[in-house]
């Protein structure tokens, strides 16, 4: 197990290096000149360009620039300063990360709740009315784009019914003093509810199918029959014998999908104007703000890798066969 963990960590580090390098190269090779961006685009004065280029080391070879970036990142945990407005990327992320985290984790909870309840239920009653309804839900969830879903939700629940706010974020710990913005846990929840569902829908749909298939397969296993032969009631069989085995593959998938899900969060944040990482990323790309974009990517990568590590440990914990191997 210890070796398993070490192996996983080494992998994570390698992946980290590769991913940061690739993003670095993409932007470096890209058509846009960051120096020009900082000096006001087309009307940039040569003096400014020169200054900026030297300041950021933009004229050095690729590997030197990467090394500077890497060194700053690892030794000083500093993601640099925005090319667009010079603000600290660290601070930008510190502000944006809680927003995205609220969205992703809250959404994941909803997505797992929908997936588990619908998936298990339709596995137990295949071809029942609910199972068929769930299939329709799955089809919609998979084929609809989150932006579209978001707009529909906004219109129906926000505009027509007036149940929820249409956009914006409310800080969980209360709004900054004097900002006049809503704040506090309740407002947070109230503002997040639509984004959560929008975000969760696609994955819930995918997971309903997976949970359903896994539970049905596990129900066919010989050890489930053994449990029945012992005289165990169905509920006990489901909880103690079926679910844990059926959820093993789901846990692995969850680890892999959280990265994809973070990508999906970009759309949701845009639709609901949540000041999260996704929005920063979009703005950054539009403004050729390489430092911010790189910062967001690095941060997201670390988050995903960490999350995957947690999932791996969790997996080993629930599957004794891995634990002992």
């Amino acid at each position: 197990m210890f070796r398993y963990l070490i192996r996983r960590i080494l992998w994570a580090i390698l992946l980290f290096i590769i991913i940061t390098f690739v993003t670095f190269v993409i932007f470096f090779m890209g058509p846009n000149d960051p120096a020009r961006a900082q000096c006001g685009g087309d009307q940039a004065r040569p003096a400014c360009l020169k200054l900026v280029t030297e300041h950021y080391g933009l004229n050095k070879p690729l590997y030197v620039q990467y090394w500077r970036f890497f060194d700053r990142l690892v030794v000083h945990q500093n993601l640099g300063y925005s090319y667009a407005n010079g603000s600290s990327v660290n601070q930008t992320i510190a502000k944006a990360a809680p927003v995205t985290a609220s969205l992703v984790f809250g959404g994941a909870v909803i997505w797992m709740m929908i997936a588990l309840s619908l998936g298990v239920y339709s596995a137990l009653r295949p071809r029942s009315l609910l199972d068929r309804t769930a299939m329709v839900f799955v089809l919609i969830g998979i084929s609809a784009h989150p932006v579209w879903i978001g707009l529909i939700f906004e219109y129906v629940f926000g505009v027509k019914l007036g149940w929820t706010p249409i956009a914006n974020y409310a800080n969980f710990f209360g709004a900054p003093a004097g900002s006049g913005l809503p704040g506090g846990p309740w407002q947070w929840f109230y503002h997040m509810i639509l984004p959560w569902f929008t975000f969760a829908l696609l994955f819930a749909a995918l997971y309903v199918r997976m949970v359903r298939a896994n539970v049905m397969e596990t129900l066919n296993e010989d050890f489930v029959r053994t449990a029945r032969a012992k005289g165990a009631p169905e509920r006990r069989i489901l909880v103690s014998h079926v679910l844990r085995n059926a959820l093993l593959p789901v846990v692995t998938m969850l680890g892999m999908d959280i990265g994809v899900a973070l990508g999906g969060a970009v759309f949701t944040e845009t639709v609901y104007q949540l000041p999260g990482l996704g929005q920063n990323l979009v703005v950054g790309i539009q403004a050729n703000d390489f430092a911010t974009v790189q910062g967001v990517v690095v941060f997201a990568t670390v988050a995903i890798l960490l999350f995957n590590l947690i999932v791996d440990v969790l997996y080993a914990w629930i599957d004794p066969r891995i634990r002992l191997a």
Binding site: M1, F2, L5, V313, A316, W317, R323, L324
Partner: peptide, 8 residues
């Protein structure tokens, strides 16, 4: 045969 989960 090992005991322990993280540190075996």
């Amino acid at each position: 045969i090992t005991r322990g989960i993280i540190f075996q």
